[in-house]
Computed example of a mutant assay.
Amino acid sequence: MMRRLAPALLLLAALSGCGAQAADDGKLSVVTAFYPLQFISERVGGDVVDVSNLTKPGAEPHDVELNAGQVGQIADAGLVVYLGGFQPAVDDAVKQNGSDHAFDAASAIQLLSAESADAHSHEGETGEEEHAEESANGTDPHFWLDPTRLATVAEKVAAEMGKADPAHAADFTARAATLSTELKTLDGEFTTGLKTCERRELVTSHTAFHYLADRYGLEQIGITGIDPEAEPSPQRLAAVAEEAKEHGTTTIFFETLVSPKVAETLAREVGAQTAVLDPLEGLTDENADYFSVMRANLAALTKALGCES
């Protein structure tokens, strides 16, 4: 269960913040909520911004809790980049300490419905219902798994940085354009790589890949809903096993930041193997970045789905 910061702690952090708009080195201070937002902020900001991440590497971002120092960072930042509804503790801190200098990535794009993302993962359930943990506004937060949506957000981040630091606005815009081109190239690689496949059903431990499936014409079959820590019912496991057998599924995907046990159990049941499909909520390899992980995802998908090279 996510825990929010106590109001007293939020107030204490607000009072201790000095409201500075720049880091100690004079650069624009940008605080980001989790990895994909950190990635685009670093690429767009370049060497004239200092970017920090509220979610530690390898940590599950859904359940992030903030200490007083992190709330102070939000209060003192020149710009806060977050995703409303995804991390309640961050939402609370922004509302009380940073609403005048915060940018909500959800305002830049059309988010998909969490209900539609979870619909297939709950078909045919009996007994006790499973409830997915979704954004507070009922949307699926994982937009960054569609490179074109991430490009749109990067362009908006550039505009927000330009407002906070007008002297470098043109540089931010130029770097966002370069990043957008790279993301569109990646999008083309996915489109080509997943164009002709033996199977189009993507069996995942939880339904984090709605945007990827929607963009590239795949069908996501989630063992659980959007919440990566949810436990599937025996009925749900049986239903997914039946679907996997019907579709000739050879691979059950699990994620880097959660236990693979459920995926392994299902794989044994259907005679399939397991593989990693990374939702990119946080990095576990310091030598990796958004592009390398997404290309690793593409390689895993083309192998699992029997796609033509």
Results as ranks from 00 to 15, higher is better:
residue 9 L to H: 11
residue 10 L to R: 15
residue 14 A to W: 15
residue 15 L to I: 13
residue 17 G to Y: 13
residue 18 C to W: 14
residue 18 C to G: 15
residue 19 G to A: 13
residue 19 G to V: 14
residue 23 A to P: 08
residue 25 D to I: 08
residue 25 D to H: 10
residue 25 D to F: 11
residue 30 V to N: 06
residue 31 V to R: 09
residue 34 F to W: 11
residue 38 Q to Y: 11
residue 43 R to W: 13
residue 46 G to F: 05
residue 49 V to M: 01
residue 50 D to M: 05
residue 59 A to V: 05
residue 69 G to L: 04
residue 72 G to M: 11
residue 72 G to V: 09
residue 77 A to R: 04
residue 78 G to Y: 10
residue 79 L to T: 09
residue 79 L to Y: 12
residue 85 G to L: 06
residue 86 F to W: 09
residue 87 Q to Y: 06
residue 91 D to V: 08
residue 92 D to K: 07
residue 94 V to M: 02
residue 101 H to M: 03
residue 103 F to G: 09
residue 104 D to K: 05
residue 106 A to N: 06
residue 106 A to R: 09
residue 116 S to N: 06
residue 119 A to K: 06
residue 121 S to H: 02
residue 124 G to S: 04
residue 124 G to M: 03
residue 124 G to P: 00
residue 127 G to F: 02
residue 130 E to R: 01
residue 131 H to D: 02
residue 134 E to S: 05
residue 138 G to H: 00
residue 143 F to P: 02
residue 145 L to M: 11
residue 147 P to Y: 11
residue 148 T to Y: 06
residue 149 R to Y: 14
residue 150 L to G: 02
residue 151 A to Q: 12
residue 151 A to V: 12
residue 152 T to G: 11
residue 152 T to L: 15
residue 154 A to N: 12
residue 158 A to Y: 11
residue 165 D to H: 10
residue 165 D to T: 06
residue 168 H to M: 07
residue 170 A to L: 12
residue 171 D to A: 15
residue 172 F to D: 08
residue 176 A to T: 11
residue 179 L to G: 02
residue 181 T to M: 12
residue 183 L to N: 08
residue 185 T to G: 14
residue 193 G to M: 10
residue 193 G to D: 09
residue 194 L to K: 07
residue 195 K to D: 13
residue 196 T to K: 14
residue 198 E to Y: 13
residue 204 T to H: 03
residue 204 T to E: 02
residue 205 S to L: 05
residue 205 S to K: 00
residue 210 H to C: 07
residue 213 A to H: 03
residue 213 A to T: 03
residue 216 Y to P: 00
residue 217 G to F: 05
residue 217 G to A: 03
residue 219 E to P: 03
residue 223 I to N: 03
residue 224 T to I: 00
residue 226 I to T: 09
residue 229 E to L: 12
residue 240 V to A: 04
residue 241 A to I: 01
residue 241 A to E: 09
residue 242 E to Q: 14
residue 242 E to L: 11
residue 244 A to H: 07
residue 247 H to Y: 15
residue 247 H to V: 09
residue 248 G to T: 02
residue 250 T to G: 14
residue 251 T to S: 10
residue 262 V to Q: 06
residue 264 E to T: 05
residue 266 L to C: 01
residue 270 V to M: 02
residue 271 G to I: 05
residue 272 A to G: 07
residue 274 T to D: 10
residue 275 A to Y: 04
residue 275 A to C: 08
residue 278 D to V: 04
residue 281 E to M: 01
residue 283 L to I: 10
residue 289 D to Q: 08
residue 290 Y to I: 04
residue 291 F to E: 03
residue 291 F to V: 06
residue 292 S to Q: 02
residue 292 S to P: 01
residue 294 M to E: 12
residue 296 A to I: 02
residue 300 A to S: 14
residue 301 L to V: 04
residue 301 L to H: 08
residue 303 K to T: 14
